[in-house]
Simulated scan of single mutants.
Amino acid sequence: MNHYDLIVIGAGIVGAACAECAAREGLRVAIIEPGPVGGGATAAAMGHLVAMDDDPAELALSRYSLALWERFADLPQAEFSRCGTLWVAREPRELDGVAAKVARLAAAGVRARQVDGDELYRLEPELVPGLCGGMLVPEEAVVYPPRVALHLLELAQALGADAFIGHRAVALTAAGARLDDGRELAGPVLIATGCALPELLPQLPMRARKGHLVITERYPGRVRHQLLELGYADSAHGDADSSVAFNVQPRPTGQILIGSSREFGASDRAVSMPMLQRMLERAFAFLPMLRELQALRVWTGFRPTTADGRPYIGAAGVREDTWVAAGHEGLGVTTALGTAQLLIDQLLQRAPAIDPAPFLPARVLR
């Protein structure tokens, strides 16, 4: 039986980040992944690196993680692009909360400012006429999540981590975990399997939320910033069975990535034409020129969602030497690096840089 200091189950961007962080700390690490690295929720992510301010705990984790992302700003395969985020208001009432948002972000160390209608169109001339302004967060960025996940895994392997790719962890054992080929690994276990978390830890509830994405052919310069509607958080964090919101990104390749949709209760990966049309019509309402562009690919995926919208990060609370990093929904890419550091600090019994209490799995076990 192989013995490890940490067995990471799941090689999405969160699991890969945890494996790399642990290996960097000198721990002997194993990472288990049955499918392609970064092929689950990571492949269904838009790759935005944004600070969301509607929940103080989420803002603290986002801000902490964004600082750690600077380490990869010059990594070619990450496709890191500091395009900035432009939040767009359709109606004057949507601007009412912008000053408070700017203040919350500033208190967390994130630079943002309100923009009026004239500046909005100087920044993004293709936006539909009649918009009244928004908020610019100039230092935010986008990345290509699957490649980052693979790079993090490679960094962990270079530091001595063992990767069991193409194998599934079928059970937790008294000593660690059992693989689908019968091998047993011994050591503390970290479960970072997203939507599949209840398969190994049924005590921790998780809901899968389906999303659609569209990427176009190359149209460099047509969109300059990541664009979101100011009502995006209501869609992302609401509990409606289905919702759409305007979210468009310029990729470094010149392509344009279009989102976003969210559905509870959908269990198949097939593209839903009604949902896709609903999502695209929302995007066209803000950016009419998208109607003229050629789509290259449409795909779906499932994002893991907890009941309170906060991920589980910390000791599982139901088994000794079992840890969890899962349930990040649409912020898994932004918060992956912060999640990893927060988790490994707890594992090593060090004081974390931010308060881990809002994310501890024990909150749902009371």
Rank of each mutant, 00 (worst) to 15 (best):
R310N: 13
A326H: 07
S272L: 04
G332E: 07
A285F: 02
F264L: 08
A326C: 12
V298F: 02
T305R: 12
L296W: 15
R278D: 03
E292W: 04
E263S: 02
I313E: 11
G254T: 10
G330D: 13
I313M: 05
A325C: 09
L280I: 00
R262Q: 11
Q294T: 15
I258R: 06
G254Y: 03
E292G: 03
T305K: 14
D268S: 14
W323Y: 07
I258P: 12
I256T: 10
Y312L: 15
R269W: 12
E281T: 03
F284N: 01
R251F: 11
P304Y: 14
R282F: 02
P311E: 11
G265I: 07
M275I: 06
I256W: 12
G259T: 06
P288N: 02
T322F: 15
S272F: 13
S267Y: 15
P252K: 02
T334C: 14
R251D: 11
T335H: 08
D321P: 05
D308P: 08
M289N: 09
G317V: 09
A266Q: 15
L287K: 01
V298E: 07
V324K: 10
G330C: 13
R282G: 00
M275F: 12
E263D: 06
A326N: 07
A316R: 09
I258V: 08
V318C: 15
G259H: 04
P250W: 04
P311I: 06
G301T: 05
R278C: 01
T335D: 01
M289F: 12
R251E: 14
Q294P: 09
Y312V: 06
L280W: 00
T334K: 04
L331R: 15
G327W: 13
L287W: 06
M279G: 05
